[in-house]
Design a protein around this nucleic acid. Sequence first.
DNA 1: ACAATATGTAAGATATAATTGACATATTTA
DNA 2: TAAATATGTCAATTATATCTTACATATTGT
Lengths: 64, 64
Amino acid sequence: MKNRKMKMARVEADVSQEKLASIVGVTRQTINLIEAGNYNPSLKLCTAICKALNKTLNDLFWEE
Amino acid sequence: MKNRKMKMARVEADVSQEKLASIVGVTRQTINLIEAGNYNPSLKLCTAICKALNKTLNDLFWEE
DNA sequence: ACAATATGTAAGATATAATTGACATATTTA
DNA sequence: TAAATATGTCAATTATATCTTACATATTGT
């Protein structure tokens, strides 16, 4: 399933996929894939994304 | 750095590394490595561990 | 309308998470 | 004390996250 929470947080922070990618040190495609879902990123990457967007793991990656 | 929070949650739930491993579908060594630190598990695995121990991502894997 | 920027996907290569098997040391329990 | 059970760690292999390159479609601004 798509990760809408992450996309919303990114758009709210007004950063492009490419900008976020460069901040956290991955490629644009990786960010795109995470938002598109059917992907299983590493904890380190999830944490870096959260910090870049001023969110926590539960905010962006916890379901239910 | 070691993941003390996860180890404490596991011990509190009274499950061995091996038991937890079988619940979440990985090997004992993988659980051991995560608790020992210097490891970067996948989001899916982190989530499975949290649910097995009745914790959230922030409880076990969020720093600061 | 055009140009620039942003997004969605794909195939093949590389890095690394996770496995398997194995052995040693603790820790618990009879 | 002895026997289980649990933990720590290693080397070699396999599975998969991430990279690279590339192309297409949206979207935004001039």
